[in-house]
Design a protein around this nucleic acid. Structure first.
Lengths: 106, 106
DNA sequence: TATTTGCGAAACCAATCAGTTGCATATATA
DNA sequence: TATATATGCAACTGATTGGTTTCGCAAATA
C-alpha cells in the first residue's frame, strides 16, 4: 500500500479536507458536514492522511480531533523547489529551445 | 477522466519522468531506457502529462521530443503556498494547541 | 442500566489505473 | 521500393481507489 504525500493530495476531497482543518482541528463528523459524502468516506480519507503523517489525531473523550501537520507539506515544497529555478529564470522561454536544438543534433 | 496536475504527480514514475526531462527534452524511447518498463507504458504517462499541460511535444521528423512546461508547476506551488505561512510561523507548534483547546470548549 | 452518539473497521462494488501485448502509421534508410 | 525505426493507440488484465452499507466498540447521557 503506497502511502506518500503526493498520492494523498491527489484526491480533491482530501485537498479540501486539508484546507478545512488547516487552521483549526475538527472531528470527522464536523468535516463530513462540509462534503456531499458519508462520515465513513471522510474517515477513510482521514486514515490515508494520517498514514502519511499529513494529519494528526487528538483524542478528546469519544471525539477525535484531526489537525494538519503542516510541516509534512515541506516534502511537496521540496520537490517543487527543484523546478522553481526553471520557471523563475527565463530558461523555460528561450534557453530551453536552444537546448532542445542542441540535443537534436547529437 | 480526471486530469489535473495533482493526480499527474501522484505517480512516482511520472515524477521521475518530469525530473528527467526538466532540463533537456527527450524522446519516449530515451526516457523509457531509464525505467524498468516498456516504451508503451512511458508513452501512456507522457499522454497523461501532456493532457494536463505539464509536458509539451516538439515534433522532429519521426521523433517526438517531450519537454517540461515548468510554468504549470506553479499551480502546485500556489496550493502549497497557502500552508507555507503555517509551517513558517511557529503557529504549528504552540498556537495550534491553544486553538484546539479553545475549539474543544465550545 | 439502557440508549444515544462518535467513531473505526470490514465487506463489498463500480470505476479507474498502470501495466502489458499487439497493431497501425509515419518517417528514415538500404 | 522494401525494410527498419519511432511512435501512438486499442484491447485486455490485475491491482487500487473512492465510495457505500453494515457492524462493533467506547464514551456520554437519560
Amino acid at each position: 500500500m503506497r502511502r506518500d504525500v503526493f498520492q494523498a493530495i491527489a484526491d480533491p476531497t482530501r485537498r479540501a479536507i486539508i484546507l478545512l482543518i488547516a487552521f483549526r482541528a475538527m472531528t470527522p463528523n464536523a468535516i463530513a458536514e462540509h462534503f456531499d459524502t458519508t462520515r465513513q468516506a471522510v474517515s477513510k480519507h482521514l486514515r490515508i492522511l494520517t498514514e502519511c503523517r499529513l494529519v494528526k489525531q487528538e483524542h478528546n473523550g469519544r471525539e477525535i480531533y484531526y489537525q494538519l501537520e503542516a510541516d509534512k507539506m515541506k516534502e511537496i515544497d521540496a520537490w517543487i523547489e527543484q523546478f522553481r529555478k526553471i520557471w523563475e529564470s527565463r530558461f523555460s522561454e528561450l534557453d530551453k529551445v536552444l537546448l532542445t536544438l542542441k540535443n537534436n543534433k547529437k
